[in-house]
Design a binder for these strands. Structure first.
Lengths: 140, 140
DNA sequence: ACCCATTAGTTGCATATACAATTGAATGGC
DNA sequence: GCCATTCAATTGTATATGCAACTAATGGGT
């Protein structure tokens, strides 16, 4: 039974606490998400959704898998996110040549939404830069 | 109706696509999370949970709010995360002086889990560094 | 034409995340 | 000692996220 070298867990904890990249990145991600979500809240849009809108806009006709490749998102996540966005009328389903594919494109409402989002995005982006700079992840 | 300056939405899309800090940070966060979660999967632990374990270990007796301050997590998120971790036996509830507070501490199982996690964490951390370097967010 | 492997998407399930509203406990003013 | 306020945590609800298992459609090889 249980005589353990006393240092082992404590030093492991210190090492992880001091160095773990995942914590830092995830904290940053939560902070950034909060920042942009707050900015976009007046128009009922989240940053995740804005990013999907923009990705789709760049692609004209976007297949879920392609969007996923672009944003490093699992297909199942996109499946549901796109459904919600179609539901809200920001995206339209398009008939694909191949019946397995379910490409989407930007609707008029989606386009208008992007336009409305822009000034709010800019505001968040400014503050976002400040955060990145202050954490030494960017310079001016 | 509605003659809009043709450039407006397209240029907004290009600007956001080319510059949005939130997309980049969130993509990185998903990648890192996947990386560490994959590494930790053999012991049934997620990186979120490892981070909480480590935070609690550093604090000895941790109040949810305090952990939240440390990890920039909403109290409601923590409420449920801690409940799951107590459930699994990695954390123990402690009686607080003040009945509003519900501090937790690391259990023996939690301590062992951290020890088991360490080599797996190290492996992920190495790869994580490579990712950060390749995205020019760190240098060697 | 038929079966098989591959490909695209969906669904079940669990966790993560946050905002709003609520509950329960302390506490300060009177 | 009582009430309003304040503080800590929980609960309701919605979204985000991913893995595994599944379904549906295609395409090949025979």
């Amino acid at each position: 039974m249980g005589q353990k070298r006393c240092s082992s867990v404590a030093s492991v904890v210190d090492t992880i606490a001091a160095n773990c990249l995942a914590v830092r990145v995830r904290i940053l991600s939560r902070d950034m998400t909060r920042l942009y979500d707050d900015a976009l809240r007046p128009i009922g849009l989240r940053v995740t959704q804005l990013n999907v809108l923009v990705a789709v806009a760049k692609m004209q006709e976007a297949m879920p898998t392609e969007i996923g490749r672009h944003l490093h998102l699992d297909k199942s996540t996109l499946s549901r996110t796109l459904a919600r966005m179609v539901e809200k009328g920001w995206l339209q389903e398009v008939e694909g040549d191949d019946a397995r594919r379910r490409p989407v494109k930007l609707s008029r409402a989606g386009r208008n939404l992007i336009r409305d989002a822009f000034p709010l995005w800019q505001e968040a982006q400014r503050e976002g830069k400040r955060i990145m700079v202050s954490r030494k992840l960017m310079h001016d």
